[in-house]
Design a protein around this nucleic acid. Structure first.
Length: 493
RNA sequence: GUCCCCAUCGUCUAGUGGUUAGGACACCGCCCUUUCACGGCGGCAACACGGGUUCGAUCCCCGUUGGGGAUGCCA
C-alpha cells in the first residue's frame, strides 16, 4: 500500500498550488487504499508561524482532505512537526559525518555574497557554492573553530557521472552531477535544511511516493544523493505541473484569490474547489462529466492521467463548477448555506407579511430559496437575489428602475394594478400566486395592455431588479400588503 | 547566463502513425419564457514553427521559438 504525504511549510496560507499537491496525494492514497500523511516542515525558524500552521490545517479541513497520520491525528512515525525531530536529524548528520559524506563550511553569508559578486564582476556566472570549504585541512578547521566561527554542514557531492530517476509523471529525469553543488544540509543555527530533513523524514516515515510540485525537480537529484549517502533507497518521485495564472505567468495575488480561504469567502463550495483543482492537471478522460464529488474523483483518479504540462487557473470555470455543485444541492443543504447569510444581516420573517403556510423565518427562507431554483448559483449574489423579501432597504438596480419604473406610463399601470389587487383581494389574508396572476391578467385585459406591460415594471418595483423568480410567486411570498405598498410607492416616486 | 521541464481551440483537456481532431468553460445565435437563470439546438475556435523518419505525421526524432521552474545556511 502506498504511503504518501503532504509536507507544507507554515510560512503562509494554504494556496492553490499547495492545495492541489495535497489533493493529488490524498486522491492517490484514497484511490489505492494507502496512507496519507501530513507533515509540517517548520525548519525555518525565521518564517514559520503559528498562524500559518493553523491556516494550513484549516484549509485542509475545509477542503475535506483528511490525513491518517500527522498533527492531531498522531501516528507511529511521529512527531510530525520537524521542529520536534531535531535529535533525529542530528543523529543522521553524525552518521554522514562519520562516513565523510559531509563537511563543515565556515563561509558566512557575507563571504558567499562577496565571492559571488567577484565572479560577476569578472564577467563570469556564479554556479552556486564554489566548494571553498570542501577540502579544508584539519588545521584550517581547527583554526576556524578556535576563532569561534559558526559552521554549517554541506554534502560532498560527486563531480562526475549523473543522477537520475524515473519520475512517475514525466518519465526519466537525469542531471549531470557536475551541475549539482554542495548544498547545506545542516544550518549554523542547528536546524537541518529542507534538503536534509525531507529525506530523513520521508525515509523514516516510509513514504513510498513523493508527489510534489514541478518546482522541486531540481532538488530531487541532490536529495537522491543524500539518500545514497545515508545508504537508503529513495522513494518513487512524481512531479506535478505547476498551476499558473490566467495569463500563464506565475500565479500571484494580482490574479485574484490564491489561498483556499479566500475562495471560501468568495462563496466557493469546498466540493467545487476540490473538483476544480482536480481538473487542473488531471482529467477523467474522454468526454465524461467533469462535475464530480470527491468519491467519484477518487474512483477515477490515476497518476497515469496526470498531465505533464502546466495549467492556467481559470476563475470562470471554477465559478461554473461551483454553480453546478450548488445546483445539485438538496433543499436542506441550500437552506443550511443560506441560513447564516440572512442571520448575519438580521433578516427574519415578519408575521405582518401574511404569507400562507409560513410559520417562522426558516420555513420562509426555505420557500424563498425554492423560488430561486437554478438561479441560486452563488453564495455571493444570494443576498441581492433575496434581500427584497426581507427588507425594504434592499439592493436596487438603478438602471433597471429608471427604465421600467420611473416612467409616467409605468406609474399609471402600477397604480392601476395596486388598486386592482387592493379591491380584488383581501389584504388581511395570505394570498396564493394564482390569485395575483388572475388579478394581473384581468387588469391587463381591462386596460387593454399585455400582461407583460404590467409585469415588467412590477418586477422591478417589487424586487429592485429586472430579473427574479416568477412574479406571481414573488407576490405570494411578499404578501399582498407589501405588494400593494411597494407598487404604490414606486408609482408615486 | 547555466541546468531542467513543457507545448492540441482564448482557457482546462480527450485522442491517434491514416479521425469530419472529441468534450468542457468563455463567447455568439436560435428556441423555451412574465424577466433572468436553467434547459435544448446550432455556431466560432486548436495540433507553435522548421527540418527529418515514414507510403503517410498532430502523434516518433532533432532544432527554433515561446512559456515555466531551478540556480538560498527558504521550503
Amino acid at each position: 500500500m502506498p504511503r504518501v504525504r503532504f509536507a507544507p511549510s507554515p510560512t503562509g496560507f494554504l494556496h492553490v498550488g499547495g492545495a492541489r499537491t495535497a489533493l493529488f496525494n490524498w486522491l492517490y492514497a484514497r484511490s489505492q487504499g494507502g496512507t496519507f500523511v501530513l507533515r509540517i516542515e517548520d525548519t525555518d525558524q525565521e518564517r514559520s508561524t503559528e498562524e500559518s500552521y493553523a491556516a494550513i490545517l484549516r484549509g485542509m479541513q475545509w477542503l475535506g482532505l483528511d490525513w491518517d497520520e500527522g498533527p492531531q491525528a498522531g501516528g507511529e512515525a511521529g512527531p510530525y512537526l520537524q521542529s520536534e525531530r531535531l535529535d533525529i536529524y542530528r543523529g543522521h548528520l553524525a552518521t554522514l559525518a562519520d562516513g565523510g559524506h559531509v563537511y563543515k563550511c565556515f563561509c558566512s553569508a557575507q563571504d558567499l555574497e562577496d565571492r559571488e559578486q567577484a565572479v560577476r564582476d569578472a564577467g563570469g556566472n556564479w554556479e552556486g557554492y564554489d566548494g571553498h570549504c570542501r577540502d579544508l585541512t584539519a588545521e584550517q578547521v581547527a583554526a576556524y573553530e578556535a576563532d569561534g566561527k559558526p559552521c554549517a554542514w554541506r554534502l560532498r557531492t560527486p563531480t562526475e557521472g549523473s543522477t537520475f530517476w524515473y519520475d512517475v509523471i514525466v518519465g526519466k529525469r537525469e542531471f549531470q552531477n557536475e551541475v549539482l553543488v554542495d548544498r547545506v544540509v545542516f544550518k549554523a543555527d542547528g536546524f537541518p535544511t529542507y534538503q536534509f530533513a525531507v529525506v530523513v523524514d520521508d525515509h523514516l516515515m516510509q513514504i513510498s511516493h513523493v508527489l510534489r510540485g514541478d518546482d522541486h525537480v531540481s532538488n530531487t537529484p541532490f536529495q537522491i544523493l543524500v539518500y545514497n549517502a545515508l545508504g537508503w533507497k529513495p522513494p518513487k518521485f512524481g512531479h506535478m505541473p505547476m498551476i499558473l495564472g490566467p495569463d500563464k505567468k506565475r500565479l500571484s495575488k494580482r490574479h485574484g484569490a490564491t489561498s483556499v480561504e479566500e475562495f471560501r469567502k468568495l462563496g466557493i463550495l469546498p466540493a467545487a474547489m476540490l473538483n476544480y483543482l482536480a481538473l487542473l492537471g488531471w482529467s477523467p478522460g474522454g468526454s465524461g462529466d467533469e462535475v464530480m464529488d470527491a468519491a467519484a474523483i477518487i474512483k477515477k483518479f490515476s497518476l497515469k492521467k496526470v498531465n505533464s504540462s502546466p495549467a492556467a487557473f481559470d476563475y470562470d470555470k471554477l465559478n461554473h463548477i461551483n454553480s453546478e455543485h450548488i445546483k445539485r444541492l438538496s433543499a436542506d443543504e441550500r437552506l443550511a448555506l443560506a441560513r447564516p447569510i440572512i442571520a448575519e444581516r438580521g433578516w427574519r420573517l415578519d408575521p405582518e407579511w401574511l404569507v400562507a403556510g409560513v410559520a417562522d423565518t426558516d420555513s420562509y427562507l426555505a420557500r424563498v430559496l425554492g423560488t430561486l431554483g437554478n438561479r441560486f448559483s452563488s453564495l455571493i449574489t444570494l443576498p441581492e437575489q433575496i434581500g427584497f423579501f426581507f427588507t425594504d432597504d434592499h439592493f436596487v438596480d438603478q438602471a433597471a428602475w429608471d427604465e421600467h419604473v420611473d416612467t409616467a406610463e409605468a406609474a399609471g399601470l402600477m397604480m392601476a394594478l395596486a388598486d386592482a389587487i387592493d379591491s380584488g383581494l383581501d389584504l388581511a389574508q395570505a394570498q396564493a400566486a394564482a390569485a395575483f396572476e388572475e388579478v394581473i391578467r384581468t387588469t391587463a385585459e381591462q386596460l387593454d395592455v399585455k400582461a407583460g406591460q404590467l409585469i415588467h415594471p412590477s418586477r422591478v418595483a417589487l424586487t429592485g431588479q429586472s430579473r427574479s423568480a416568477g412574479i406571481f410567486e414573488v407576490m405570494e411570498l411578499m404578501g399582498a400588503r407589501r405588494t400593494v405598498a411597494r407598487l404604490r410607492k414606486a408609482a408615486d416616486a
